[in-house]
Design a binder for these strands. Structure first.
Lengths: 226, 226
DNA sequence: ACCTGAACACCGTTCAAGT
DNA sequence: ACCTGAACACCGTTCAAGT
């Protein structure tokens, strides 16, 4: 509950804070309690420092958020991509985007809010471009494939984030379907729509459809030529 | 600039407000100036009434937003769906979701923020379920197709909304690619990534890929059997 | 039933002032 | 150079009080 007693340097007056320490603390705070917990006052209290100190070191809230996202982004820099064929390797990167977004959902949601998704996923975006390149896609086609795949993943993430934060629940998709009297819709469909889909499985299917549309494997996926 | 002189009823003291008038005004405000303009104080001033009056009529901000979204949703109720084959008609509904979201981007963005996207698009969701039904999809398959398509559209919308609100522009995807020295990525690709994609065209391609994955036309799309 | 003003507990941000 | 307290201009929400 008490703010961590920050290590006061020899002077006895300096708080011993620097840009990185503040950003690090902000990142931890968001990861633990979500973006709403990140207020300048709260963060300052947690660092045992006056609110205005944060402004001196990192600037306003927007700069803080940008720095925080970039910090996490660097951690996503090195990833292992495996897969036999090109399309399989593209799928692997897409899954990385999905997995890392879910692993750091609070920061990802924050990045979505401020429109800095690309900043957060830049290393993965580069990795995706590289795999598309080895798949033979270049120029505008490669860009379109990359953007389409990432936008689709983003759409899935928005829904995935909503699932764990139930919210008002009143205007959740599945509860809305509880009141529908179906004209021209089979009852089995209405019933199914009251349950959430298997998101990871559907993700796999949907992204695969996009990948198949853009990257045409020379060899069949399951039996790459040795 | 001045608040609209609200029609004071005969009593001379009543503001003559009701639930619907407040919600209507809130909707207009959001459509015109975005979700950040919707504050309880601002709305009250615009209605020429005390802030607390809004609380009495419609409840807090969340209820107001929900009501506002639902109001707009009702306007999307009746739409014309055309197209020869089943998959063409499904595409038509998807385009409707896209178009109406862009036409009312501020409210749609707000709905995204509070997790009420489904509430806003419910009429279109029903229309989509109906077209999928006539395409022969039932039960869980129909649900998965519907969800996948809508999630993909949502992902595109998030990016589309970012485009017209440039924001900090520093961590926009295309500016980030300006600094990239490409290892294993063709220069033409890097160059292309510095430009935004043709969003409507890419939307068409991506959603079509999903539709083709889920709904298999019995007849070819272009030449339906008479 | 309908509407008000005052008050509470928050925000982000600025700025003159301290050491 | 680094840090502070006070202040400004906002929020959403509650609640006793008016007619």
């Amino acid at each position: 509950m008490k703010a961590a007693t920050s290590p006061l340097r020899g002077t006895g007056r300096r708080a011993g804070l620097d840009h990185d320490a503040i950003v690090e603390r902000a990142l931890t705070l968001v990861e633990a309690e979500g973006s709403t917990a990140l207020t300048m006052r709260r963060l300052a209290a947690e660092l045992g420092v006056a609110t205005t100190t944060i402004y001196w070191h990192v600037g306003g809230r927007d700069e803080l958020i940008t720095a925080l996202i970039q910090r996490l982004s660097e951690r996503h820099a090195e990833i292992e991509i495996e897969g036999a064929g090109p399309s399989e390797r593209v799928m692997c990167v897409a899954r990385h985007v999905w997995d890392s977004a879910l692993a750091h959902r609070n920061v990802t949601a924050l990045a979505h809010q401020v429109g800095a998704t690309s900043l957060l996923e830049m290393p993965l975006e580069i990795a995706l471009a590289r795999e598309l390149d080895t798949a033979g896609l270049r120029g505008e086609v490669a860009r379109d494939a990359l953007r389409a795949i990432l936008m689709c993943v983003a759409g899935f993430l928005v829904v995935a984030f909503r699932s764990d934060d139930p919210g008002p629940a009143r205007h959740q998709a599945r509860t809305l379907w509880a009141d529908i009297t179906a004209d021209g819709i089979d009852r089995s469909t209405v019933t199914a729509l009251r349950e959430p889909p298997d998101l990871p499985a559907l993700f796999e299917t949907a992204v695969r459809a996009l990948v198949d549309r853009f990257v045409v494997d020379v060899e069949p996926r399951d039996a790459p030529v040795a």
